[in-house]
């Protein structure tokens, strides 16, 4: 039961992007198409999962005073591996995400989960935590990129959805559109929270 809880908390209640407002840089930069959003989410989840497993397995071995540098090295190693794997097997996505793949290293969510969860909990719970946070972040990216792609390009997953007569609001896939979409979503989250409390 508690494992299920570790999984579900990341999806809505502690959604890393919409509730904790972490990992904003890639969320604004690459959410111009759903494809990119999904790809970024998958890469991010893979890194988080791998780093959570290793850090929770080594939590009794890593000396406390140098835990942060150790985490950074571990996370950077996994990011580089994902970077190489994506370059080899998904070249189009690799090109679209560009510099934001190596920048997963400095995504505060990953170091945050290592510090707040993986170094205090077992491997099993850490896996569930990573999956929950990863899925939550991916969902958030897909929502963002869905809104921006439909409004800004008139397509969803590259398939036209608005009909030929509608002309898309170009601004939504330009940089300002990222800020607008994210601002609207956060305002909506605030509204929902105020209603709940």
């Amino acid at each position: 039961m508690s494992l299920v809880n570790e999984f579900t908390k990341g999806i809505i209640r502690e959604n890393p992007l919409f509730v904790l407002v972490l990992g904003t840089c890639p969320a604004l930069a690459i959410t111009t198409s759903v494809n990119n959003g999904l790809g970024m989410g998958a890469a991010f989840t893979a890194v988080l999962l791998a780093s959570n497993i290793v850090i929770s397995a080594l939590r009794k071995v890593i000396p406390d005073s140098i835990r942060i540098p150790s985490y950074i090295v571990i996370v950077a190693a996994f990011v580089t591996m994902i970077d190489l794997i994506m370059h080899a097997y998904t070249p189009a996505l690799y090109k679209a995400l560009g510099i934001y793949i190596p920048l997963i290293v400095v995504n505060c969510i990953i170091l945050g989960r290592a510090e707040a969860f993986a170094n205090k909990n077992g491997v099993g719970a850490s896996i569930m935590d990573a999956l929950g946070m990863g899925v939550g972040y991916t969902l958030a990216l897909v929502v963002m990129s869905g809104i921006r792609e439909i409004l800004g390009a008139g397509t969803f997953f590259g398939i036209p959805v608005l009909g030929a007569s509608a002309s898309p609001a170009l601004i939504m896939i330009l940089p300002p559109g990222g800020f607008i979409a994210f601002g609207c979503i956060l305002a909506l989250m605030n509204k929902l929270q105020q209603k709940a409390s």
Binding site: V21, L174, P175, P176, G177, G178, F179, I180, F182, G183, C184, L186, A187, L188, N190, K191, Q194
Partner: peptide, 16 residues
């Protein structure tokens, strides 16, 4: 509901 981050993001959008 626009206090804090949302209004900051809208500001950023206009600057952008």
């Amino acid at each position: 509901c626009f206090h804090g981050f949302p209004i900051a993001l809208f500001t950023a959008s206009l600057m952008s």
